[in-house]
């Protein structure tokens, strides 16, 4: 780890973690509005906690934003562990993160989400949400692309910010 070489202050990291989360959320939610996907991660996260659509959206957006914010620190550790502070390395981490989400995390959701139906459970009064399926394709063929794009931009924002800091200091 080369944390002592880290080019940014904690305050900057917090700020840019938030900015990266906003960028990613805007891309993912915007893709729904533009008709590329039906996946709403904030909604799915919110539905973990509550069955009311209204509160699920509000709580979900809050939880998702905080989660994205905290996740930024994991990215910072990764940057520091290899000592590469560039936008392209951020893009690489983001893309890998996106692939993991699509092929592993989202297909697992029906087994852990209390309100999600699955091909194995069938429907109950509690489980009525459509499952995402492999690569989240159930939510539209554009979903893998928009998810990868959102995650990659998240990584680019974080890596690009650190790269910028180094350039400015140099």
């Amino acid at each position: 780890m080369m944390l002592d070489e880290f080019p940014s202050s904690p305050a900057d990291l917090i700020l840019w973690g938030l900015i990266a989360t906003i960028v990613m959320t805007s891309v993912l939610e915007g893709s729904r509005g533009f008709g590329f996907s039906r996946m709403s991660l904030p909604f799915l996260v919110g539905m973990f906690f509550i069955g009311s659509r209204r509160w699920a959206l509000i709580l979900g957006l809050l939880a998702y934003t905080i989660g994205g914010w905290l996740f930024a620190f994991l990215y910072y550790f990764l940057f520091a562990s290899v000592g590469i502070y560039t936008w392209w390395f951020g893009a690489l981490i983001g893309a890998l993160h996106g692939v993991f989400l699509l092929v592993a995390a989202l297909p697992l959701l029906p087994f852990v989400h209390p309100r999600m139906a699955s091909e194995y459970h069938g429907l109950t009064s509690m489980r009525q949400l459509e499952p995402p399926g492999f690569l989240a394709l159930n939510y539209g063929y554009g979903t893998p692309v928009t998810t990868l794009l959102g995650q990659t931009l998240y990584g680019i924002t974080l890596g690009g910010f650190l790269q910028l800091q180094i350039v400015i200091r140099a």
């Binding site: 709403s40 799915l44 139906a117």
Partner: peptide
């Protein structure tokens, strides 16, 4: 029907 959201399945019978 759903647009831009994950779908919601309906229940039949008494529901």
């Amino acid at each position: 029907y759903s647009q831009a959201d994950p779908g919601v399945f309906t229940l039949l019978g008494a529901a």
